[in-house]
Design a protein around this nucleic acid. Structure first.
Lengths: 195, 195
DNA sequence: TGACGATCTTAACCTGAGTTAAGAATATAG
DNA sequence: CTATATTCTTAACTCAGGTTAAGATCGTCA
């Protein structure tokens, strides 16, 4: 399958974008590759593109003003959308960095083109709603993990629910994502030997 | 102002719903009052209504399976929408309880009627998108509070940003909202005397 | 007003995460 | 296959929040 076919298929699965609706968008999609450590979007930058990951892993992180520590917020991988949602929707500067952690390939579309598609087609409007819902679910799940689970439970659930992330990301990035320091994650892992 | 006028005004402010667009919806809105402790929506119930709070305060909480503790997730008050968003959008059973903490008055609309309005009017479609964005912001802010702030910082920011909640809700409910136990909140408050 | 229930604080002890720094294990490149 | 950098674990200590139970304070209403 070509990359465009992969995209078409994914959009169909996700939002019922059929061949005709996809055709409306086809001239708008562009392709970009990222090296390890390259940014999809940076702090204070307005996110102008919605990306679909053909291959690779991205992380979105926050830099704490006080401790200057990086705190991982989201991971995005293959066949997922990558976007700084709030910045993209409101076209305001982003609070985060979104960085490629691997060699990556992305197909992306400009916010203006997407808005055109919303106006032209109910299918694409539906897509916009579903992206909003997906973003909500992502944020709400993240909030729930921190409100209701201990770091140990978050660790176990990450292994269960996102083995793709767990297996492809160094542990110190996992620790940051779980909201703890690397030594704490080591202790949790040690505690669990035998359980 | 009548309650309907309050609603009309708020919808206009929030999403540019003009007199004509409001007229489309006017026969759909119903009114309900809640006593202290009455539920807007309960665990395992599908949330079928989007409410606009004329007066009162609601809280959404989760009950921990293990500890059987209540954990407050959101507060909603006057001139805000009250809804179990995920349940409402997906029409699936809710994970939460949403309870009135005071005598309250709500104007509400059924999900089917709202979907009708989406189909009929771009104004209402816009409203739907904005509700989705509001829900995202609420969830994302909550996630950020827990990912990036200490309980003490969360407490200070609550006082700053939501004095209405802080002043109208008992401290043990605030503690739960901040993700800590009541004695911890007492210690934080004590620590801060003199700061 | 005074008695009750609700709310808030305090104390004592426990536990798990933070911090720092050192060292072990693992990858990667030359 | 060794040297080097990266990643992971461990140790020792500190500290904030959890837990439990007691007591203080506040509100309310008979």
């Amino acid at each position: 399958m070509t990359e465009t076919q992969i995209l078409n298929y994914a959009l169909n699965q996700f939002a019922g974008i059929d061949a005709d609706a996809f055709e409306l968008s086809s001239s708008y999609w562009q392709r970009k590759t990222y090296g390890k450590g390259e940014f999809y979007n940076e702090y204070k930058n307005v996110c102008k593109y919605l990306g679909f990951i053909i291959d690779g892993v991205f992380r979105t992180y926050y830099i704490d003003d006080v401790s200057a520590e990086e705190k991982n917020v989201f991971f995005f991988s293959k066949n997922q959308v990558v976007v700084a949602y709030k910045s993209f929707v409101t076209q305001t500067p982003c609070s985060y960095y979104t960085e490629s952690m691997t060699e990556s390939t992305v197909l992306y579309i400009h916010v203006n083109h997407l808005n055109e598609l919303y106006a032209k087609s109910h299918h694409w409007e539906r897509f916009g709603r579903l992206v909003a819902e997906t973003a909500f679910n992502l944020a709400m799940n993240r909030a729930e993990e921190f409100m209701f689970r201990t770091p140990e439970q978050r660790y176990l659930e990450l292994i269960q629910n996102h083995p793709d992330i767990f297996n492809n990301v160094p542990l110190y990035h996992i620790a940051s994502y779980l909201g703890i320091q690397a030594p704490s994650l080591s202790r949790i892992r040690k505690r669990m030997v035998g359980k």
